[in-house]
C-alpha cells in the first residue's frame, strides 16, 4: 500500500464521513494492524487487541470532525497512542484468553502456542524498554510487518527518519535480547 495508498484512503475517509459502512470496514482492515502495533508500544499484548478496538470506536465517532481526509493516517496513529497511554494509566491488565475458535484451530498444540506466545511477550517486553520512537517503528516493522516506506506513509515520518529509527532501535535491541537470552 505504498505510493497510491493515501489517495485510496482519502476516498475511503470521505465515504466513511458520509456514513458509508463499507468504507469504515475498509479503513479498519487497512489500519488495524498499524494501530495494534502502535498500541503494543505502550501496553501489553494481553490488552492491545481491546485497546485497538476502542481506538476505532473513537476514530469513527469523531471522523466527521476530520477536516482534511488526507490527514487520516496521522489522525488514527495519534488516536492509537492516546488510547494506549490512557489504557496504561488505567493499568488495565485483563488477560487475553484464546477463543474457542483459536483453540480448535489447526497448527501447534495449545501448549506449544502458549509457549510461543510467552516467548513473544518476552521479546515484546524487551522492545518495550526502548525509547518510544524506536519501539513504535520497530513494532510496526516486526509485528505489523510493514515496510519502511509503509511506516513512513502511515506515521508521517520521512523515509530517512524511519530508517534511522529502525537501525538505531535494532542496535539498542540486540544487546538487550542477548542479555535476556532471546533471539
Amino acid at each position: 500500500m505504498a505510493g497510491d495508498g493515501s489517495a485510496q484512503w482519502t476516498e475511503l475517509v470521505k465515504r466513511a464521513q458520509r456514513g458509508d459502512r463499507e468504507a469504515c470496514a475498509g479503513l479498519y482492515a487497512e489500519f488495524a494492524r498499524t494501530v495494534h502495533a502502535i498500541v503494543l508500544g505502550h501496553v501489553g499484548a494481553a490488552v492491545a487487541e481491546d485497546v485497538t478496538q476502542e481506538v476505532f470506536c473513537s476514530v469513527f465517532a469523531s471522523l466527521a470532525r476530520l477536516r482534511e481526509p488526507a490527514a487520516f493516517p496521522a489522525f488514527v496513529c495519534t488516536a492509537a497512542r492516546n488510547a494506549a497511554c490512557s489504557a496504561l494509566r488505567q493499568k488495565r491488565r485483563t488477560p487475553r484468553h484464546e477463543s474457542p475458535d483459536e483453540l480448535a484451530a489447526g497448527g501447534p498444540s495449545p501448549v506449544a502456542r502458549a509457549e510461543q506466545r510467552e516467548a513473544a511477550e518476552r521479546v515484546h517486553a524487551v522492545i518495550a524498554t526502548l525509547p518510544e520512537a524506536y519501539r513504535e517503528t520497530l513494532l510496526l516493522r516486526l509485528v505489523a510487518g510493514l515496510s519502511g516506506a509503509e511506516i513512513a506513509e502511515r506515521t508521517g515520518l520521512t523515509h530517512g527518519s524511519v530508517r534511522v529509527n529502525l537501525t538505531r532501535g535494532m542496535a539498542l535491541l540486540r544487546p538487550l535480547l542477548q542479555e535476556a537470552g532471546l533471539p
Binding site: L40, R113, V123, V143, A144
Partner: peptide, 14 residues
C-alpha cells in the same frame, strides 16, 4: 537475525 525476531513476534501479530 531479523527473520528470527519476526518469527518470535509472530504470535503478537494482529
Amino acid at each position: 537475525e531479523l527473520a528470527a525476531l519476526e518469527r518470535a513476534l509472530l504470535p503478537l501479530r494482529w
